[in-house]
Nucleic acid binder design. Structure first.
Lengths: 195, 195
DNA sequence: GAAATGACAGATAACAATAATTGTCATTCA
DNA sequence: TGAATGACAATTATTGTTATCTGTCATTTC
């Protein structure tokens, strides 16, 4: 029995803690219940499955990333600058997580590999952010004419090496990585711009 | 005892056959020796290890891919056209192998994951082909000025979703994939071109 | 005597038996 | 009465055992 009533938020926090300590391979629902001082049945009252628990943890982190991305965008500058900031912010958030919180990042990687809706929703979010900026750029005449959906998808695809967790193993040497990301982003922005 | 003397080439062919039948997880050196009708010790006379055997199989396939790429390049056309042909030829070769020869492709994926020199040499080859075309394009004034090495690397990175075996799981829907590859290649070519 | 063999030690994989975890739900508690 | 529990069946992981494979090398074969 615990003093305060059990709520979803504290279960998510406990899950995060357990994942960080044991990693996605070893972390169990029983570990989470133990940390909270409740039975595992109580955890299942708030979450339908172990997978849902992990998705909630990752969704919370992705919410932060998306908030960061929205903030970094800054609607005052020109589309190329906005797109560059959006991309580099998303890259940096992923790189930092992979480096500083490897177990949670590994959890994220597993969810992506398992086609979790949380992850595809995040991709859809980033894609939509790119699309909006591209559409703005085309309207303002800075970017060449084209279908914003197709172009946004091309921008996302062209930069996958820097944001897709599938490539996290290559995110070791930060200086080199930054230079390579910069080269691709510049190439893509140049490709978008009207001449 | 077999009629003809045992040579490296037939060992590679037998290994290819065994890999195709059993897949990289199950294929053993003993299987190869059995298929050849020799003892596994004889195989080790020609190849130092199981890994070397698999590398030889993949190297033989990559040699074909590289020959295809060289042929498709065609030195008569303009750099943008040449680069497009080089890229689409390499993409198509990988897509076809993944689809039509999945066990050998899985072997390739394992080698890539294991940082095999055979695979990094192939990457170096493609990178150099791109670099040469980019350098030509800059010389001819079709491409904007820049460091050919950096630009070539950016082109390779920007197209990784279409040639890196890490992404093979996404190579299912061919029509969609071709359209996405086309969008990225066009964006990249537009990015390279001088204005 | 060059090529092939097969016995061998160490490493790896397959297997079966056992233990732990997941998810459900009738019961208990406050 | 609504939240929490823990017994339970089904699934999944772990362990210890056995079998197979890898790579070497002294011996054999032609």
């Amino acid at each position: 029995m615990r003093p305060e009533p059990l709520d979803a938020e504290s279960i998510v926090s406990a899950t995060e803690e357990v994942l960080r300590r044991h990693g996605p391979e070893k972390a169990t629902v029983l570990d989470v219940a133990r940390l909270l001082g409740v039975s595992h049945g109580s955890v299942y009252r708030h979450f339908p499955s172990k997978a849902a628990l992990r998705e909630a943890v990752i969704r919370r982190w992705l919410d932060e990333v998306e908030a960061l991305a929205t903030a970094a965008r800054g609607d005052d500058s020109a589309p190329p600058e906005r797109l560059r900031r959006l991309l580099t912010t998303v890259f940096a958030a992923k790189w930092a997580k992979a480096k500083d919180d490897p177990e949670l990042f590994a959890t994220f990687q597993k969810l992506v590999a398992g086609y979790s809706t949380v992850c595809s929703a995040h991709t859809a979010f980033v894609l939509e952010q790119i699309r909006a900026i591209v559409a703005d750029g085309i309207d303002e005449g800075e970017f060449a004419a084209g279908e914003p959906e197709t172009l946004a998808r091309a921008v996302l695809d062209a930069t996958c090496r820097f944001h897709d967790p599938l490539y996290a193993a290559d995110w070791r040497a930060t200086a080199e990585l930054e230079a390579q990301a910069e080269a691709v982003v510049s190439l893509v922005l140049h490709g978008l711009c009207a001449r």
